[in-house]
Design a protein around this nucleic acid. Structure first.
Length: 414
RNA sequence: GCGACCGUAGCUCAGCUGGUUAGAGCAUCGGUUUGUGGUACCGAGGGUCGCGGGUUCAAGUCCCGUCGGUCGCCCCA
């Protein structure tokens, strides 16, 4: 069918309603981010591979199979960002952002993962991202979760999404819980699914969110993190939940919600929905106090989240048409020249208007209608001679003559 | 990397057990109407039926391969 170039697998050309949805999500994020005092930053799309590899752990499948890595002409290994957090932490260290600590940062843009595309998963996808770096207080966790909750609320999808919350505790908690889980699963290994038996060696915590029914009883009877929480860790989590309650944010405890990587501490959370096929998380994050240290920096507490713009876009109501206020319909060359000036004046006055590049009156009226414009401004020789134009309300069909220098108020006034 | 389903016009699809020049709606362009859209009518352009091979007198239709898509598994920082 085609010798012409095709879209690369897992990429998207976002247009029309999809583009409107995307913009709606981004606009809501920008609004909410300001309300919470997060500074907007712009980050590189690629980093040295080490930035991601070191933070994730060199041996995992993620690094070997899921990253878009390549060599530049100097032979350095670079990687398209698979997420924002690692790059932001790198900048925190390399650009001296430590002087602004505790710093609240928000950004959004494309990220890249070499995965098999499916519903809500793309190779180039788009994320919203919020981080608080340099704050180890529970109030930071509360604030960043509240920000996520408010975003979902403003997008009108708060009711269909549940906040699941857990704590991984401090390193002592985490290690003790992990050991107990491994022991529990190893003792019941023969009853586990094939997938989970493999996970037992590679990433035992992931057995907790196995999709295999046969694993569920074993998961349900597994030790919960609460039994291993140190007094400090329990106190920390108590302050986070108290803060959420004070902020009026509904949450559900999920004592088996986990994060696979070692640098996660304390709070872990996911806003989840049933409406996205095999994907459930729309906004997820947690506290990652160990990350910056693992990148070679000083111990630095931090908490953050990321959300998939495409997933949010799929969940929101269809945005209202972003129609034009008016469409110019000139009749003849002289009128067209006059209409160009009228359009320029209207736009300077803040009226969204446009004029078709070609076509007879009928065609231009069709275009005016299709543009969603409330009014057609018909400019013909008779009207021009009188310094007027015909303003037609495309909803009611009513039409009246308006002086050209009063068009802006006529259109604005309704 | 694995599995299931699907590839026919720009888009959404129809095409019965293989059988004459491959269809519809929408979209595009033109006309009915050289100053009136959203509802009407007439017409036009647009397809090597994803690609390659095979079976057959005959393949869009059946078989194999391949590429692409969708959904799921794995993974999910």
């Amino acid at each position: 069918m085609s010798k012409s170039p095709q879209r690369i697998r897992g990429t998207q050309d976002i247009f029309g309603e999809d583009a409107d949805r995307f913009q709606t999500v981004v606009a809501a994020f920008e609004r909410v981010r300001r309300l919470y005092g997060f500074r907007r930053v712009e980050m590189p799309v690629f980093e040295a591979t080490q930035v991601f590899a070191r933070s994730i752990g060199e041996t995992t499948d993620i690094v070997s199979k899921e990253m878009y890595s390549f060599e530049d002409r100097g032979g350095d290994s670079l990687t398209l960002r698979p997420e924002f957090t690692a790059g932001i932490c790198r900048a925190y260290l390399s650009e001296g952002w430590q002087q602004y600590a505790a710093v609240k940062i928000a950004t959004h843009g494309p990220a890249f993962r070499y995965e098999r595309p499916q519903k809500g998963r793309y190779r180039q996808f788009h994320q919203l991202d919020a981080e608080i770096i340099g704050a180890g207080e529970p109030a930071a966790d509360v604030e960043i979760i509240a920000m996520g909750a408010q975003l979902l609320g403003e997008l009108g999808i708060g009711e269909r999404i549940e906040l699941k919350l857990n704590t991984l505790g401090d390193p002592a908690t985490r290690d003790a819980w992990r050991d107990a889980l491994v022991e529990h699963f190893r003792a019941r290994q023969k009853d586990l699914s094939e997938e989970s038996r493999a996970r037992l060696e590679k990433n035992p915590l992931r057995i907790l969110d196995s999709k295999e029914h046969q694993d569920w009883p074993i998961v349900d009877s597994s030790p919960v993190v609460d039994d291993f929480l140190t007094p400090d860790a329990a106190d920390y989590f108590g302050r986070v939940t108290a803060g959420l309650d004070a902020a009026g944010i509904k949450w559900t405890r999920d004592p088996r919600l986990v994060r696979g990587l070692d640098y996660y501490r304390h709070t872990a959370f996911e806003f989840v929905t049933e409406d996205l096929g095999a994907q459930s998380a729309v906004l997820a994050g947690g506290r990652y106090d160990g990350l910056i240290e693992s990148m070679g920096g000083p111990h630095t507490p931090a908490v953050g989240w990321a959300a998939g713009i495409e997933r949010l876009s799929m969940l929101i109501e269809q945005p209202g048409a972003t129609g034009m206020d008016a469409a110019l319909v000139p009749l003849g060359e002289a009128a067209e020249a006059a209409a160009v000036r009228i359009a320029a004046d209207l736009r300077r006055a803040g009226i969204a208007c446009e004029m078709a590049y070609r076509g007879n009156m009928k065609r231009r009226m069709q275009k005016a209608n299709a543009s969603g414009a409330r009014y057609a401004i018909i400019v013909g020789d008779d009207e021009l001679a009188r310094g007027e134009a015909a303003v037609k309300d495309l909803q009611t069909g009513e039409q009246r003559s308006v002086a050209i220098d009063r068009l802006a108020e006529a259109v604005r006034g309704g």
